[in-house]
């Protein structure tokens, strides 16, 4: 049978990829359900949650500021030079405000937090797994999901929207700097254009996305760390895998969430 074996191999490859994907998705959802369950019953890990809010939120502020300011600046610069070709440069404020609140704010904040705090979550939990610290928690009658994952989940879900508010504001200010100071646009025009077409729904939709990204980053990164196998190399793989998986989740879900929340 010509081409038979290679066709089999192709089908086998596709089949096993599908099975792997389904299994991973299933495990992530089970961990998510367990996290929700543990979150609702006392004792509540308040101290740990605040510690994680600091890790995820406060320590991400500098990177978020730089990312947002420069993104706003780039948006203003590109819009100004591009729109000038058909005389619409007055709309810079509108473009920057809408882009930042609906897309760039939440997505870039999500990516920054996934790269910074998400990687740290995977590495920390992974190390705890391979050095048996997670087993030790179990032997001390403490649920590792409650003690380790719930605080990270809650902290990310709260801090991501907060960071996004910062990113939205600073992105718009970055755009202002370029439009007004560099291209000499009138300050009042920039603000008027920015506000006139901005609806509260744009901001809320963006923040809702950020909240989802926060939850997704925490679950995905904790999942990769929690089920780490194979020593130091395993921790490395878990960390890289966590960041890649978070990025994919953010970028893919962004489309669907956007289509649903921000019609």
């Amino acid at each position: 049978m010509p081409g038979g074996p290679s066709l089999y191999r192709l089908l086998e490859f596709l089949g096993s990829a599908c099975i792997r994907f389904t299994r991973t998705l299933g495990s992530v959802l089970i961990l998510f359900a367990e996290t929700l369950k543990e979150m609702l019953f006392p004792p509540f890990e308040i101290k740990n949650t605040f510690k994680q809010m600091q890790e995820v939120g406060i320590k991400s502020v500098p990177v978020v500021i730089i990312t947002a300011v420069f993104t706003g600046m780039v948006l203003a610069f590109q819009t100004f030079t591009g729109f000038k070709r058909f005389g619409a440069e007055a709309l810079v404020g509108t473009v920057v405000a809408l882009s930042m609140t609906r897309e760039m704010g939440p997505v870039l904040t999500g990516l920054v937090v996934a790269g910074r705090a998400g990687a740290a979550m995977a590495a920390e939990l992974g190390t705890m797994r391979v050095t048996e610290q997670i087993d030790a928690l179990e032997t001390l009658s403490t649920s590792p999901v409650k003690y380790l994952i719930v605080p990270r989940f809650v902290a990310s879900m709260i801090m991501l929207p907060c960071l996004t508010i910062i990113a939205d504001m600073l992105g718009i200010l970055g755009g202002y700097a370029i439009a007004v100071w560099l291209y000499g646009m009138s300050s009042a025009l920039y603000w008027r254009r920015a506000w006139n077409y901005l609806e509260m729904n744009d901001i809320y939709g963006g923040l809702a996305k950020a909240c989802f990204f926060g939850a997704a980053i925490a679950i995905v990164c904790c999942y990769r760390g929690f089920y780490t196998e194979g020593g130091a190399e395993g921790v490395g793989k878990a960390t890289t895998g966590a960041v890649v998986m978070s990025f994919m989740t953010i970028l893919i879900s962004d489309y669907f969430l956007g289509a649903w929340l921000l019609k």
Partner: peptide, 9 residues
């Protein structure tokens, strides 16, 4: 339980 590598937090 005492773990092999002590498993201290």
């Amino acid at each position: 339980m005492l773990f092999q590598g002590a498993a201290l937090f």
